[in-house]
């Protein structure tokens, strides 16, 4: 597992960590059952607070991507085999999609520009998977 902290990134550190773990799970670099470093180890080697790492891990646990109990090493959870239902998607993504759209329109993007941008990103992911 490769984790880095970008000072230039405006997002808080715990979101950066959670984001990188998610990406590595999505790319298949981290598989179900793979262990993650302990909170202390990761925080120590990145020179950040343990609470930051714990926060990142609990976000991932709340999203059912990590399993971790007190006193146990955090592990990648087995991924869902079925796509999430509409209701679940609505709660998980609605707010972020709304925010993203607002940002895009404020930057002056048209609806078509936005659609193209999304398609481009999806194609990039597909290329990477090959």
């Amino acid at each position: 597992m490769l984790i880095t902290i970008n000072d230039q990134d405006p997002r808080p550190v715990y979101i950066q960590i959670a984001g990188q773990v998610k990406e590595q799970i999505q790319r298949g670099e981290l598989k179900a059952g793979d262990e993650l470093p302990s909170v202390r180890e990761l925080a120590g080697s990145l020179g950040i607070n343990m609470h930051t790492v714990r926060h990142a891990y609990s976000i991932l646990r709340d999203q059912n991507l990590l399993v971790f109990r007190l006193g146990q090493q955090a592990k990648v959870a087995s991924l869902r085999s079925q796509p999430a239902g509409t209701k679940e998607i609505a709660t998980a993504l609605n707010r972020q999609l709304d925010e993203l759209l607002t940002e895009a329109f404020l930057l002056g993007l048209s609806a078509d520009d936005f659609r193209n941008l999304i398609n481009e990103k999806i194609n990039q992911r597909k290329e990477q998977k090959k």
């Binding site: 597992m1 490769l2 984790i3 880095t4 902290i5 970008n6 000072d7 262990e35 993650l36 470093p37 180890e41 990761l42 080697s45 990145l46 020179g47 090493q73």
Partner: peptide, 19 residues
């Protein structure tokens, strides 16, 4: 990814286990 990180000078950690 590593090439970009190398140039950026950001703190990074790679971790893996054998268990």
């Amino acid at each position: 990814e590593l090439l970009k990180l190398k140039q950026s000078g950001q703190p990074l950690v790679y971790w893996e286990s054998q268990n």
